Amino acid sequence: MSQQGERLLEGRVVIVTGGGRGIGRSHSLELAAHGATVVVNDLGVGVRGESSQEEPADAVVAEIEAKGGVAVRDTGNVTDWAAVRSLVANTVERFGRLDAIVNNAGILRDATITSLTEQDWDAVIGVHLKGTFALTKHACDYWRAESKAGRPVAGRIINTTSGTGLAGNVGQAAYGAAKAGIANLTLTTALEGSRYGVTANCISPVAATRMTAGTGIAQPGAADGFDRFDPANSSPVVAWLASERSGWLTGRVLRIDGNTVHPVDPWSVRRGYSAARGGRLDAAELDAGLRVVLGTAPAGLAGLNIIS
């Protein structure tokens, strides 16, 4: 077991998207505290992706450097394929390596399905899902080439999903679809990346940030002073996932609620029922059969073949 204060990331280089604010800022600081060189990617845009005059990446880099760490900023847009390719290439050129990526960038444009516009749908899917894939793709290209050249690879991909992506939420069709897609992308990346030394895992933080304002998540901390919704709560998990030590774990979604980590299982197959007389299912049976297996009707209805 690691000792308190042990640095897990000495010599490793990590890219964090959306690393200038909120959860991303906490990740960047935690990674640097464990000895990582951190590339802080952040456009400085508003919650909806609108332009602003802020440069949060600079502030995070300055904070890391003030504590003796090494960090640089990047302001490329994660939806820009060429910019993300350059982000990976420039990181490797400057530091000689890339060891982990944290896909954290995101925006919100909440609306019910009947009010959601094509533009808003595309914007949210672009930043969350395309942005996650773009960095994953270019980082994996680098790691695969390193592996084929015979050099050791311990690549780590840490993606970010949410409760909405796992269970849905009214008014968040685009956000939820993107986050669900990220969870599934993680599973596929884990399967493919294992061939060349790369793991892929996904976190689902419970946290109060500017993106959760007005959702009821931003609640006061516990009476003992521990804040269940502090954005920094998930960052130790990210630091461990970015380390070589986590190499045994891949293809998992971890829900982080306060100081507790819950592994989340993917879609699972429940008990079902078979056609009463064999052969194809009968549409007329479906109502009674599904009511029984889903627990909305008493078991034991005549003629149903329930399969555990």
Rank of each mutant, 00 (worst) to 15 (best):
V269Q: 15
A183Q: 00
I307D: 14
T161M: 01
L116W: 08
T199F: 01
C140F: 09
L29Y: 09
S147F: 13
G165Y: 01
A59I: 04
G106Q: 03
G171M: 07
S268K: 15
V198T: 00
P220F: 15
T209I: 10
G303E: 05
L294W: 11
V127F: 00
N104Y: 07
I306N: 02
G76V: 11
A208Q: 03
G279Q: 04
A242E: 01
A71K: 07
G20S: 05
A284Q: 13
S204L: 00
G214M: 04
P205D: 02
L9A: 03
V269Y: 14
E55A: 14
L191F: 10
L108S: 12
Y273K: 00
V14M: 04
R109W: 02
E192Q: 12
A299M: 10
R7P: 04
V16L: 04
A154Y: 10
G11L: 01
A283L: 15
D120Y: 02
G44F: 04
K148F: 15
G24C: 06
I306W: 05
L116F: 09
K179Y: 07
A276E: 08
D265P: 10
I203K: 04
L254H: 03
A134N: 14
L9I: 07
L254Q: 01
R280T: 14
L166M: 11
G295L: 05
A123Y: 01
G46M: 02
R255Q: 15
F133G: 06
A223S: 11
V13N: 04
T161A: 06
S26E: 08
I217A: 05
G289K: 00
T75H: 12
V269I: 13
Y142C: 00
S115Q: 14
T215S: 13
G49K: 06
A83T: 04
T160Q: 11
A71T: 11
I306V: 14
S115H: 14
G24W: 01
L286W: 14
